[in-house]
Design a protein around this nucleic acid. Structure first.
Lengths: 360, 360
DNA sequence: ACTGGTTCCGTAAACGTTTACGATGCTATA
DNA sequence: TATAGCATCGTAAACGTTTACGGAACCAGT
């Protein structure tokens, strides 16, 4: 004998009453409710997930889909573990559980999603690393599965989303660079089809235009969003004909590899080139200290969870119903890596002048 | 109409036949099987997880339990994402799915495990960060849930495990240090009750004894296993009365913070102190290059999954049944950080001699 | 024509819950 | 006393699958 029946037999009452007692239904006496709760705790009873889900049509599980393997761009991540923690604290308050749905590097993300959602495995979803055009959004919207995206997409089905504020980052960074006299400002963009790359370049382009600076495609450096990418980027940067005097790194890990490459070449951030990057626990240990955009990823997780719950009618009392689409602010924190000043008006340093006039 | 019934009605056959066709049962004609599979694909049918699990008593889901939040010791993790990927590739071959069970920083890990396992949520489990005494092992063994531990524990219920080979690490590192003349060798150990700390210190102690060196408790430095911990450790190290000339860092992230702290103090790894650490994508960008223990975490994930499946009688054909308990080898890879030589026999450098004779 | 065997398929029970419904006993009121 | 209302509980159906069982149809051999 197992499950709720064991409990019922032990207490000599019906399984219906046990269930009502456990679920806080009103039509059960306080006396029996007490006995049931006591016995349940004593016998370590936990309702079977499948039985409950089958009957209720709801699983109380929220999935956070991420891709494993190191080819995803984001390697080395406090990122997800921290966001998870924020999401979990909100969901836990409502008896919901968070699990990470791990799409292996050998499986197609769209097929994976279809499989796991088709199974009726989760009540809601958080998807991340949204692509410029993302079939997952269409799929989830078609099935009207509650979900929220961490990242915007051109695929717009009215879904809620949060996204890091790349507009703000590009704007503030370019403003600061220009104020220090920089005119050749590079930007690091992801090599994949992830949408944030496009958003970033657009924002960067508009920020340049606002200052009357030309857009030079050669200054958009593409690479995987990890340290190795940052290292490769330093090489690409130093090899450019007309070397930029400033660079904005929006990938979390990029700056670490970039520093390594620059310093190896004798180019000191903050002195020979201005760098602004993204903060993370690793970047805190860079030297010279990195001028960086910071934010609380745990709070982002909390916001994500609340916005997701707001799409459930059942939680309308706690979270005002509605779809939130919001840029997640990052604050620019001073470091040493952007302190370089560019002398006004064509007074280029000899080495740069040399580079600039090199034939072809 | 939903689920298998919709499919059956559409094809004008019974749901039993549909189920048999989909599950590859022999007693269904090839013709109808073809029709069923075609229709299933066309209509995007995926069997409901709850219904199937309820009937079969098995979920085809393996859980990998980790703790979120940054206070867990391991922050900054390629680690888990890489191991996940290895596990996933093996499980995927057998139609099993891996999900990460995220225990929030606000919930007790033991209670979390009881809850999620009691629900019958998973067929098997991988637990990590095993404690010196770990109630989770007793719980899982009592319920005879198939599981494997990433990490040893004094709680021995005959469970299979893999663990990083800290014996080998301590032995090789101490050997190398001693060969270069070091006699005061420090070791970094985690501050928590996680078992690897005890294993590590034991191994370190034995390795010292083998060379006739005394064990000095002051040389065992405890800290959280992250960069901040490494940074703090550099301070503690430099503040020691009799400063060690070598240090072994077994935490993945420690070396990064340690480097920062040492270099700030003008102490160059490999020149002024010998350092051996653990490799990871971030440590690849340290300068001077880190002499480090390396391994393939993806292969570790594969091994974990195979050893877990070996405990399922159902997979006896693929994986020889039996419980494997094995140390996962790490190979020592040369870098510059351990190149420092200590002059033989009491010929201490002035500064070190000064430190050693300082009163109290 | 009868038997036995094979192939294919439908029927129905079962998994562990939740919950609508009805039954029972009690109290209060007329 | 009869009735209505209430509190409490048991009964049974339902959720979507899988699978043991049996039945129908067919063929081969006697």
């Amino acid at each position: 004998m197992k499950g709720i029946r064991r409990l019922a037999d032990h207490l000599d009452i019906s399984i219906g009453t046990v269930s009502r007692a456990l679920n806080g239904r009103p039509d059960v006496s306080e006396e029996t409710r007490r006995r049931v709760l006591e016995a349940a705790a004593a016998m370590g009873y936990v309702p079977n997930q499948s039985g409950r889900a089958l009957r209720k049509g709801t699983t109380s599980i929220i999935g956070f889909m991420i891709e494993t393997g190191t080819n995803t761009g984001v390697d080395g991540d406090t990122f997800f573990l921290t966001v998870f923690d924020g999401v979990q604290t909100v969901l836990g308050r409502h008896g919901l559980d968070l699990v990470a749905l791990l799409c292996g590097s050998e499986e197609d993300p769209d097929a994976y999603l279809r499989r796991v959602v088709g199974r009726g495995f989760v009540d809601g979803l958080i998807i991340s690393a949204t692509q410029r055009h993302d079939p997952r959004i269409d799929f989830l919207a078609d099935r009207s599965i509650p979900f929220i995206a961490l990242g915007r997409s051109l695929t717009d089905r009215g879904q809620p989303w949060y996204d890091l504020d790349f507009e703000g980052m590009a704007e503030q960074a370019v403003d600061r660079f220009v104020a220090r006299g920089h005119r050749r400002i590079a930007v690091a963009a992801p090599a994949s089809e992830v949408n944030l790359g496009y958003v970033l370049i657009d924002s960067y382009r508009r920020a340049l235009a606002r200052h009357g600076l030309p857009f030079d495609p050669a200054l958009v450096l593409r690479s995987p969003q990890n340290q190795a990418g940052g290292y490769a980027m330093s090489r690409a940067l130093l090899a450019l004909e007309a070397r930029p005097t400033a660079i904005l790194m929006t990938g979390e890990m990029l700056s670490i590899g970039l520093y390594r490459g620059l310093i190896e070449a004798g180019v000191i951030p903050g002195r020979d080139i201005a760098v602004i990057g993204r903060d993370n626990p690793h970047a805190r240990f860079l030297s010279p200290t990195l001028t960086s955009f910071r934010t609380s990823l745990r709070d982002l997780g909390i916001a994500l969870a609340e916005a997701l719950l707001a799409t459930f009618p059942a939680y309308a009392e706690h979270y005002p119903v509605g779809t939130t689409r919001r840029l997640w602010p990052m604050t620019l924190t001073d470091g040493q890596s952007d302190l370089m000043q560019v002398p006004p008006q064509g007074a280029l340093s000899p080495s740069l002048a040399l580079k600039a006039t090199k034939p072809i």
